[in-house]
């Protein structure tokens, strides 16, 4: 692939806030027309990375391009072509829905502004509420308005910072359908999220922790890379078993999923012995299952915590 095939390429990005090293040597690429999921715990540097990509923050070192424009020297060009949705709703709550869209369209010098705004309102099904103040919208509607506003200037790249935080499942599903439609039109999308179901809807993923990119690829690739064996154990008194298993050899993590425990580890033999000894012999049902993306992320989080604490 040549650089022209990438919507975003960054190489060795670093950002410090005082003594805090927020982003460490971040290198990643986002291909044209793909939905790229950006995962990691809170405070891991996702927002900082996104802000560096759209010209809101200056990296301390490293380089990168966004849609072919340099993210340090050609910020104005980048800003003109990228759609960015902030983590917190950041449109003007004291302006009406139409006034917000109108303002954004003017600022980006969108041609046929009135028609474009009308069309957007129509698509959002907000035409009848166009005069309502943006602040009075519910969370799901605010997020749809924000997405529509960030699409007004027809960007080729969308950067979405936890767009669905605090939004109900139905609204999230509709939102993701919209994202896939956009991707099908050739728009590249970087979306950060905490939700596993959303991660699974992405074409490719990256996992970042403590400012460091730990893993990237498709979800299948990521699951494969970690080489985890996972056992599902069901039965009674799982809380006690959970505690016992955590200290056993071969067990890297025990996670409670409703009425079952997921026990995972990279050393398959050692794990099998442990499960037989503590679970099967004690009357629990235990079977090997496919390792899920969630197991992988929990594993990534645990190992990175271990490395830093």
């Amino acid at each position: 692939m040549t650089t022209a095939d990438y919507a975003v390429t960054v190489e060795g990005l670093n950002k410090h806030f005082g003594a805090h090293h927020a982003v460490k040597n971040l290198s990643m690429q986002i291909r044209q027309g793909e939905i790229f999921g950006f995962l990691g715990p809170n405070g891991s540097g996702k927002t900082t990375s996104i802000r560096m990509m759209c010209g809101l923050l200056t990296p301390d070192s490293g380089s990168g391009t966004c849609l072919g424009y340099d993210i340090i020297r050609q910020r104005a060009e980048v800003k003109r072509r990228v759609g960015y949705m902030t983590q917190r709703f950041s449109y003007w709550e004291d302006l009406s829905i139409r006034e917000n869209l109108d303002f954004v369209a003017r600022l980006y010098q969108v041609p046929n502004r009135k028609a474009v705004v009308d069309e957007t309102l129509e698509e959002l099904q907000l035409t009848s509420r166009a005069k309502q103040l943006a602040g009075s919208l519910s969370g799901g509607w605010k997020q749809r308005l924000a997405l529509a506003a960030s699409l007004l200037h027809k960007p080729k790249l969308l950067l979405l910072d936890e767009p669905t935080a605090g939004v109900d499942p139905t609204a999230r599903r509709i939102f993701w359908e919209e994202l896939h439609q956009l991707a099908a039109k050739g728009i590249s999308i970087l979306v950060s999220t905490h939700y596993m179901d959303e991660a699974e809807r992405c074409h490719r993923l990256a996992y970042i922790s403590y400012g460091e990119l730990l893993c990237q690829g498709t979800s299948a690739e990521m699951i494969q890379q970690r080489q985890l064996t996972t056992w599902q154990i069901t039965g009674r008194h799982l809380v006690q078993l959970n505690r016992t298993l955590e200290a056993c050899p071969g067990v890297e993590q025990v996670v409670a999923f409703g009425t079952a425990l997921h026990v995972s580890g990279t050393q398959a033999e050692l794990l099998r012995d442990t499960v037989e000894q503590h679970a099967t012999r004690e009357g629990y049902d235990a079977k090997i299952i496919d390792t899920s993306l969630e197991d992988v992320f929990i594993n990534l989080m645990k190992t990175s915590e271990g490395a830093f604490n």
Partner: peptide
């Protein structure tokens, strides 16, 4: 304070 500045800064305005 309201967080709208981040949005404004992300837009192409000098």
């Amino acid at each position: 304070e309201r967080g709208t500045l981040e949005n404004l800064l992300a837009m192409p305005v000098e």
